[in-house]
Amino acid sequence: MIGADDLLVCGTCATQFDVPFNSPLPNCRICDDPRQFVPPSGQKWTSMGEVKKEYSNKWTQDAVDEKLWSIETAPKFGIGQRAILLQTPDGNVLWDLIALLDEPTIEFIQSKGGLKAIVISHPHYYTTHIEWSKTFECPVYISQEDEEWVNRSEENGGHTKLITGHKETILPGITAIKTGGHFPGSLVLHYQNKLLIADTIVTVPSGLYFKDRPPGTTSYTFMWSIPNMIPLPPPEIARIWTAIQGYNFDTTHGAFSGMDIRDPNVKKRILDSMKIQVQGEGHEQNVFEDHIKARPV
């Protein structure tokens, strides 16, 4: 049987396929989707064996919350997102994934107590989820609506759990919330005062410095395609708000390092940003509000 290090990995999105590296596919179906892109140089393939020769992971403790760690690959590989390790009294949860899983990363996570669960926000970050699940002997939670984008079979090990409802309790106090938008099953993760938002609610530069900013300044954007800059319409933006409005939080953690916002008014800033975007798309604000009213919690 071919080893995981010799399986095909997309060089653009870092998705791993159940295909040998020496027999590449004509294209990556993740990158061929209009939400993603194929670079001008064309489709490029690699393997985890090759990646391990040139890349390594680093982990950084959150400056405010010592139980929160960002794990990233350097230099940047694939999309460049981070995984976030969340330590709780009931066990650890990893939010989102990076493709590279090497021995130093395994040792670091095990030193922090291992993993009880992995939750992945959307298909662009599925990467090598089967290998992570096998290594840490824990389930990987994804939305049922996005199962079609899985590219490795559980016959090779690992355990995927589908979130079928609007939310799922992962561990006590940790809730995966299905918002839709970017993908039909896009997720955010809520724990205590934190909302881990990935690409579902995208932190924008003007949101990182908000002191003395004029009215109409946005903090977040809501996109069907982020790299191709295709925004969501009002009904989908309203769906996100309806999903999260019942949760309290004063911190958001985005898909990349440096995308954290701490503000007692951060929830209001999300709602304000939604209204700004809807109006910027040429809709009246009441169109957005009508969609919220039409979606009871």
Results as ranks from 00 to 15, higher is better:
Leu7Asp: 09
Leu8Lys: 07
Leu8Gly: 04
Pro24His: 04
Arg29Tyr: 15
Cys31Pro: 04
Thr46Asn: 00
Lys52Arg: 14
Ser56Arg: 14
Glu66Ile: 10
Lys67Asp: 11
Leu68Ser: 01
Trp69Thr: 05
Glu72Tyr: 12
Ala74Cys: 14
Lys76Trp: 13
Ile79His: 08
Arg82Tyr: 07
Ala83Ser: 00
Pro89Phe: 01
Asn92Gln: 01
Ile98His: 02
Glu103Thr: 13
Thr105Leu: 05
Phe108Met: 02
Ile109Ala: 03
Ser111Cys: 01
Gly113Ile: 04
Val119Arg: 03
His124Val: 14
Tyr126Ala: 07
Thr127Gln: 08
Trp132Ile: 06
Phe136Pro: 06
Val140Arg: 04
Ile142Leu: 03
Ser143Phe: 06
Glu148Cys: 13
Gly157Leu: 06
His159Leu: 14
Lys161Ser: 14
Leu162Cys: 00
Ile170Lys: 02
Pro172Leu: 05
Ile174Leu: 05
Gly180Asn: 07
Gly181Tyr: 05
Phe183His: 11
Phe183Glu: 08
Pro184Met: 12
Val188Asp: 09
Val188Ser: 09
Leu196Arg: 02
Ala198Lys: 04
Thr200Met: 06
Val204Asp: 09
Ser206Tyr: 12
Leu208Lys: 09
Pro214Gln: 09
Ser219Gln: 12
Met223Cys: 09
Ile226Gln: 10
Pro231Val: 00
Arg239His: 10
Trp241Phe: 02
Thr242Arg: 13
Gln245Lys: 15
Asp250Ile: 09
His253Pro: 14
Met259Leu: 14
Pro264His: 03
Asp272Leu: 09
Met274Trp: 03
Ile276His: 10
Val278Asn: 03
Gly280Val: 07
Gly282Ile: 07
Glu284Pro: 14
Asn286Pro: 15
Lys293Arg: 14
Ala294His: 11
Pro296His: 02
